[in-house]
Nucleic acid binder design. Structure first.
Lengths: 329, 329
DNA sequence: TTGTAGGCGTTATCAT
DNA sequence: ATGATAACGCCTACAA
């Protein structure tokens, strides 16, 4: 393997000079830059990132912590978009990435997790979909031993940024559109998890709308489960004018239930997963650019690692209507 | 960070002794093992894998190369299962993993890719879904600079193993079941990619069956595209008795087309993706345990890295019938 | 069987 | 501005 030493020899300069050029330090003459660049070119040198990580505590090694929904795999198109978005951007920024799933450290303590990450020379972390009950991850963030970006949770501190869309506003918008299109008054709202970060925000959005439009809203928790949404719909939808769901999967469950009950009620979802195109009925939903959110998170992490303070980053959402014709290709 | 040096001091032994115990070398006394183990325990020591990778060329760092279908994201539930299966097993085996997607090195040469992997101290690779035209990846495998496991392609050499199900047999089985259930003679077979590894195998399976059951088979290439399958079905299905598709996505396209044409023909797919449960009609398909295949691939890679020779590994498949009731949760 | 010491490829801290 | 040189944490001959 061709190393920095070979480059130095080939260019007729010192090893440390090569390193400085490579990491564009100040105080290097133009001539050195040129000579080193040429040597790098001629030898096809690619710096060994493992060695860099070992030698420098500030070399960027990033861990992706992903909450894989073990049951509802269908929704996992989101996970993959997160992963590919993050890795793609990381490559651009010259950061190394390792990927971990929540279930892999289910019975580990915060300390164990921290030690594991340290043993991998990790300095930055992106966490996708942490819930309020995840003590271990909360401990991880609170420890501030790593720079963190948290997607879909309002965890912010000196070294932690949060990235998400305005779920409250998005829920308000999509519900409003659906409800006004159909002139509804009595709403069945199928929420996500009791006490979940995004669930709570979305619920607030629904409540805002209820106030503004003077709606009657019945709220039930569907736990993001298609089956529960189905059951809730079966039970309560009859004397309602519309069913607003806090996720696409639940919207699908609700829609299927309505079809079976042989009654029509407008339904809207949240997330914009492809699956929505396959259920036969069109529905309004909120589109999120998951890959884009993940890329942005990686950029934010980069900023944190270069000394910026943690903050809130707000991403855009869109209102979409998914139908089969738009999905197929 | 607590290092091997601290452990050595704490245990009152030499650094190298600790290392030997950790990597269970022969020729270490029981007493040493115990003392080191206790020190490790008491200090909560976790070896730094980056340092290990740097110092030893045989420390296992593995790269996952994944062919993300940019268009038909729906099918990507497979990609995520591959990833999580591999990473999960890797953690068990104490291997480090980085994940890369084909599109990230689309315009790189084999040499550039090799250098990149070397710069990451990668020694083992798992490649998912390489096609016959992927010159770069073929070069990578042929170079034998890394231990490789290739999923769904028959690339085997001294340091390369292949892992896949018996696609030929599976296609035979699922088509036979579907055809016999409905007593069909004239078959429309929608194949995958012309000249694709799995496509060719599956096509052979169909041909075997045609011979055995004396069927008339019309073959068209659907390029694994739902839309093309739809168009092909529209055009040719009318005077056929059944539509056999080389993938679930194409089966869905075919089924939707049939519904629109308002004619019934039995359709079968291949892969067993969740999406199949959402299209309203039940279909026979081939179930593959993608996570299991990926885990097995990682184990195989482990064997290769410890000196075994490359070989063919055959995985199991199942025949399933996907319906909504089985999917929902 | 155990310990000593050199090396893996970088980065970073010094003199020069 | 450039160049020695000591870390970084671990592995591995080789010596004891």
């Amino acid at each position: 393997m061709i190393s920095i030493k070979d480059v130095a020899k080939h260019a007729g300069v010192a090893i440390s000079t090569v390193s400085k050029v490579l990491n564009n330090y100040p105080n290097v003459s133009e001539e050195m830059k040129v000579r080193v660049a040429r040597a790098v070119e001629e030898l096809n040198f690619v710096p060994n990132s493992v060695a860099a990580a070992l030698s420098s505590k500030q070399a960027g090694r990033v861990a992706l912590l992903i909450n894989l929904n073990e049951k509802t795999q269908a929704i996992d198109e989101i996970g993959l978009q997160y992963i590919s978005g993050a890795i793609n951007k990381a490559m651009e920024l010259n950061l190394d990435v390792i990927t971990l799933f929540f279930f892999m450290f289910k019975n580990k303590t915060t300390e164990e997790l921290i030690r594991y990450l340290q043993s991998q020379s990790i300095t930055g972390i992106i966490i996708y979909g942490v819930s309020k009950e995840d003590k271990v991850l909360h401990g991880l963030v609170a420890s501030q031993k790593f720079k963190c970006v948290v997607v879909d949770a309002p965890l912010v501190n000196e070294s932690t940024s949060s990235v998400w869309i305005d779920h409250r506003r998005a829920q308000y918008d999509v519900a409003k559109k659906t409800i006004e299109e159909n002139n509804c008054k009595r709403i069945l709202y199928i929420a996500g998890k009791r006490n979940g970060y995004v669930s709570d925000e979305r619920l607030k959005g629904m409540e805002d709308l209820a106030k503004d439009l003077e709606l009657t809203v019945m709220v039930r928790n569907g736990e993001f489960s298609e089956l529960q949404a189905r059951n809730i719909t079966m039970r309560y939808a009859k004397n309602k004018d519309a069913v607003v769901c806090a996720s696409d999967l639940m919207a699908i469950g609700a829609m299927k239930a309505l079809t079976e009950m042989d009654i029509f009620r407008p339904v809207c979802g949240f997330d914009g997963i492809i699956l929505m195109g396959y259920v036969g009925k069109q529905m309004n939903t909120v589109g999120q650019d998951f890959a884009g959110i993940s890329q942005r998170s990686m950029e934010e992490l980069q900023l944190l690692m270069s000394g910026e303070k943690g903050r809130n980053v707000q991403m855009e959402h869109t209102l979409i209507r998914m139908k089969y014709e738009d999905i197929i290709c």
